[in-house]
Amino acid sequence: MQSSAARKMTAEGWLEPPPLPHHYDTIENHQSALRFGMWLFLGTEVLLFAGIFVGYFTFRHYFPEAFEQSARHLSVPLGTANTLLLLTSSLTVALAHYNAEHGRNRNAFWLLMASVVMGAGFLGIKAVEYTEKFHEGALPGRFFSFAEITAPGGPVFYVVYFFSTGLHALHVVVGMSLLIWVALRCWRKEFSPTYYAPVENSGLYWHLVDLVWIFLYPLLYLV
């Protein structure tokens, strides 16, 4: 892609869009293709997490008491706080998309940075929870040594817990990196009503991270 330095600033106060690849007829055509590609990728992400959710329900069926006991040892206030953080960061990402689409790059920058800060807050809370689990010995498989869970299957619950929240946390890190990347491009005023696909697609990824957590939160902490 052509660097932003080579692109001219328009009278409206944003950089002119990058040149249209020759195989697209119009810029709308290009934007639709970029969006469609992102949705296809999100479809594969849904299937990636599908395996984890199927694992959750299978093991929950085999070890219902262990899952119930273990869920009671997770901190509901921390889990709820994390849910609200992610929902709020989704709002700021959606607002950033709206602002970028209207050429208000500086607003979009600050909204994206707010989302990144909330993402970092999410990871911080997660780190507190993980630390507690490590001290308790509430760990997966043969590392399990948590005496308070007496029903069979405790180690299996923590396999599900650490793999689902761990894979999700990895997605949070990737999502934050994407948001920082588009925020910097907002700072350089690269986006305009005709070109905002990077903000939109990074936002779509962030919303997917939110979606996964919306299911993980009740299944792990509440049910």
Partner: peptide, 28 residues
């Protein structure tokens, strides 16, 4: 949004439900 993106996302969810349904039908 465009309908094609709706088809993509709904399809991925349908496949998730199929996987969940058949695995749970076996396990239970």
């Amino acid at each position: 949004g465009e309908g094609i993106n709706r088809i993509v996302f709904v399809t991925s969810f349908v496949f998730l439900l199929l996987l969940m349904f058949f695995v749970m039908a076996d396990v239970t």
